[in-house]
């Protein structure tokens, strides 16, 4: 019985270390897949501007983008825009692009060649497990755009980031409390919102070392107990 208990404890300790490592080691749709810890674009379409095609001077188009949390954790999703490549600038400068977060708040509005408001990661949605919310992009084409831009294309790169966030409010909250929660979360993260969220686990190494040390110590204690038991036998 004593040997069985010791074996179980050793297995539990070993599994715990493995578990920790694994934990280290989520209209258009952007899905956070918790199992794979990565984003998935529906039908492999990483181009979210399905409604911004074959446009003409004077057009104003709306693109809704659904954000989905397919994980068991509450998450916060951030958005950042990469600087536009120079070859697209003249074309994109003739458009205005406005982006609204999941609360309907405007987070960016400028000509599409600039990234005003999106130069750094900005919080766009907080999702409970299996929750989805929608952000909106509105694109306007200058009616003075000339013939030289017919059959032309331009690319805007967006970077989505997700991090675990225990402060995500319940969806059943009133709009006022939701806004308050959003404000509180934003204030709490105000010193971090302009910093890149961790895209890798920076706590991994210290925690791993700590867990290994504790495990080794546990094994030493277990071995000592075993010897004591053997000596007593």
């Amino acid at each position: 019985m004593k040997k069985l208990v010791l074996v179980i404890m050793s297995v539990v300790a070993a599994v715990n270390v493995v578990f920790c490592i694994k934990a280290f080691a989520a209209d258009s749709d952007v899905v956070y897949d918790g199992d794979a810890n990565q984003f998935v674009f529906l039908d492999d379409h990483s181009d979210l501007f399905g409604n911004f095609k074959t446009l003409y001077p004077g057009d104003e188009m709306i693109q809704e983008i659904r954000l989905k949390n397919h994980s068991e954790e509450s998450i916060a999703i951030y958005l950042r825009a990469e600087p536009v490549q120079s070859r697209y600038r003249k074309f994109l400068e003739l458009m205005t692009l406005s982006v609204y977060d999941s609360m309907g708040l405007k987070i960016s509005s400028s000509n599409a060649a600039d990234t005003a408001g999106l130069e750094e990661n900005i919080l766009i949605a907080q999702l409970q497990p299996d929750e989805e919310k929608t952000i909106t992009a509105i694109l306007g084409i200058d009616e003075k755009m000339g013939n030289e831009f017919q059959s032309t294309s331009g690319k805007i790169k967006w970077i989505f980031s997700a991090e675990q966030n225990e402060n995500v409010p319940e969806s059943s909250d009133t709009a006022e409390s939701l806004q308050k929660s959003f404000d509180d979360a934003a204030a709490a993260e105000s010193s971090e919102v302009n910093e890149l969220p961790l895209t890798g686990d920076s706590t991994g190494t210290p925690m791993l070392i700590g867990s290994v040390v504790i495990l080794v110590f546990s094994l030493i204690v277990i071995i000592a107990i075993q010897r004591k038991i053997n000596d007593s036998d």
């Binding site: 181009d47 294309s153 961790l198 895209t199």
Partner: peptide, 25 residues
């Protein structure tokens, strides 16, 4: 060890969308 592991569990992810705008003729 288990408690510490679950308390410090933390994940992030990041991915890029290449959004294309086109005009007609």
């Amino acid at each position: 060890v288990m408690a510490i592991g679950s308390t410090l569990a933390y994940f992030t992810a990041s991915d890029q969308a290449d959004n294309v705008i086109t005009t007609g003729s």
